[in-house]
Amino acid sequence: RKEMTAACTPRRRIINLTSVLSLQEEINEQGHEVLREMLHNHSFVGCVNPQWALAQHQTKLYLLNTTKLSEELFYQILIYDFANFGVLRLSEPAPLFDLAMLALDSPESGWTEEDGPKEGLAEYIVEFLKKKAEMLADYFSLEIDEEGNLIGLPLLIDNYVPPLEGLPIFILRLATEVNWDEEKECFESLSKECAMFYSIRKQYISEESTLSGQQSEVPGSIPNSWKWTVEHIVYKALRSHILPPKHFTEDGNILQLANLPDLYKVFERC
């Protein structure tokens, strides 16, 4: 597991931080080997919608929660590849102030007048994250320049770009939802926020969305749709870069829909 690298990086740093090793061990302890084997050997059937997909393993048909699986995938990559990410360069710098204002204007932020003026909160978020810029760049390849612009994001899987519609809320939550006081809790909560931002979430995906850094293989055609990215990038990574937690067998994120021999018997009677 320590050699797990989802995106190509030129050289690998050895990380011996106790906090990170502890988080890696927790993933191992909570892992479910049968689910790992199923995901490793599954045959992708198709997307139901951005949140759900169908896959077959041996004779069984499964309904998989793409949102939760991708979130767990990105969390584990962030923990196992800690401080070893490439950088996704933004085509132009994104001012943190503008991103924070967009987030505060969104109902998702939960902002009320009692929280104070949005401009003041946005300025605080910019200054707060600028103070964390060195650590964010060093460990997470999340790059913020001296003017308070976001200029780079971590490359977690080759050819995958997170849904940038979720970027404003991500920046807001970096400042408000991460435990910045304790090292282990900081790395864990920061990785979880980043994983949620990178995950496939239906509120940020339309039929026209593209999450891939590449064009489709047909010359002159439109960019790959999110469905292509889910199948050929995300579920491909799920084959080798995730140890599913045991609770996925109990919380409805992986559901067995049918045993195909039983279905064949039904059709034979028709």
Rank of each mutant, 00 (worst) to 15 (best):
R1Q: 11
K2S: 14
E3I: 12
A6Q: 10
A6C: 14
T9F: 11
P10T: 09
R11P: 14
R13W: 15
I14R: 10
I14G: 08
I15V: 10
N16D: 05
L17N: 03
L17A: 08
T18G: 09
T18H: 12
V20M: 08
L21I: 06
L21D: 04
I27W: 15
N28A: 13
E29P: 13
E29K: 05
Q30N: 09
G31L: 09
G31P: 13
N41H: 07
H42M: 11
S43T: 06
V45F: 07
L54R: 00
A55N: 11
T59G: 03
T59W: 15
K60N: 10
T67L: 15
T67W: 10
E71W: 11
E71A: 10
I79T: 11
F82M: 01
F82H: 12
N84R: 11
V87K: 05
V87W: 11
V87Q: 09
L88P: 00
L90W: 02
S91N: 09
S91W: 15
E92A: 10
L96H: 00
F97Y: 03
D98R: 03
A100V: 02
M101R: 02
L102W: 13
A103N: 00
A103T: 01
L104R: 00
D105M: 08
P107A: 07
E108H: 07
E108C: 05
G110H: 01
T112K: 02
E114A: 04
D115L: 15
P117W: 15
P117G: 15
L121G: 01
A122W: 01
E123M: 14
E127Q: 03
F128M: 05
F128L: 03
K132D: 02
M135P: 04
Y139C: 04
F140T: 06
E143Y: 09
E146R: 03
I151R: 03
G152H: 09
L153K: 00
P154I: 00
P154C: 00
L155H: 07
I157K: 03
I157H: 08
I157L: 08
V161E: 07
V161D: 09
L164I: 02
P168T: 02
I169V: 09
F170N: 00
I171M: 05
R173N: 15
A175G: 03
E177K: 01
E182M: 10
K184I: 10
E185R: 02
E188P: 03
L190I: 02
S191F: 01
S191Y: 06
S191G: 09
K192C: 08
C194E: 01
C194L: 13
S199P: 01
R201T: 14
R201D: 14
L211S: 04
Q214G: 07
E217A: 10
P219A: 09
P219K: 12
P219R: 06
N224Y: 06
S225Q: 09
W226Y: 06
W228M: 04
W228D: 09
H232G: 14
H232F: 08
I233V: 11
V234F: 14
A237C: 06
L238Y: 11
R239Q: 10
S240Y: 11
H241N: 09
I242C: 04
L243Y: 08
P244L: 12
P245I: 15
H247T: 04
E250T: 08
E250D: 04
D251V: 09
I254H: 11
Q256C: 06
L260K: 06
L260H: 03
P261D: 05
D262R: 12
Y264F: 06
K265R: 09
V266H: 15
V266W: 15
C270T: 15
